[in-house]
Amino acid sequence: MKRVLLTYTCNLVVGVLFAQEINCDALYDKDSPCYEACQSYNRAAWDWSYKQGSRLSQMSLDTNVFLCPTFGKAYYVKAIPYLKRGEFVQWKQLIDSAVKYEPNTYMGYRGGARFMFLRDYEGAISDIERCDSLLTIDIGYIYNGDYHLQMVRAFSYAALGQKGNALAIMQDYLAKAPYAGPFDYLHLGVLQMELKQHDEALKSFAAQVKNNDYVADAYYYAAMVYKHQGNVQECKGNLEKAKKYFLSGKSLPGKSSYIDYPDKVYLQQIEKELFLIINR
């Protein structure tokens, strides 16, 4: 059926307003209520007065699902402001409807959001693994593209204490990935450090710097490895660099995103370690 054309991934990147326009002609018969709902959705998508979370926008989406109760995108878009603004019960009810009607498109997205916004490790693993079982193609990335869902799966297993499993997932993913994400090697290094693979961790932090040298956190964790190895000079140098980077805004997203990213380091941690190394 025509629907197959759009169900290409479990995951989507969230747009600012209504996100991408839908090719209604490819999905629905022209005389059907779903086609009308789809067209109505597209009209609102380009109208600035329907800004995300506004009464007008939410009501318009209600009309879409009234006309076409299986229109997953309308549930998904209606859910987004609830997620961003912390009304998670409402978000979950809506996103569950999107997943119910279009699991291939929204299952992975839901898993990524459960991890990123609520650190719901079990929920994220469940959704991502179900997504993986549904698709024969790549399962995709979280809502903003910063992490592949396999990385999120690895974070979740690590948080549940299965660090060895998490490392295997991460390494397997990075070995096959056409390119690494902006923070992937940092997280790989942190996991290796926690598993006491210190030399491998330092290589990963170096790879992070080579891939994306805008992350104070990489220098902080490298300093922690050097501290463990008793290399005071390198430890201090990396901490100073971490502080400099942090103060210039080069660090894992936190304040400038909806949520803190995994393994995020705060200035207080960096300064505390600097104090300890200077006054040892």
């Binding site: 936190g254 909806y258 803190d260 207080q268 941690q269």
Partner: peptide, 21 residues
Amino acid sequence: MPYNKNGGSLCIDGGKDFVNE
């Protein structure tokens, strides 16, 4: 402004580490 103003999240002096403590 809604919570996600400026794409931002926690807007407090001292940041997340202060809140945790």
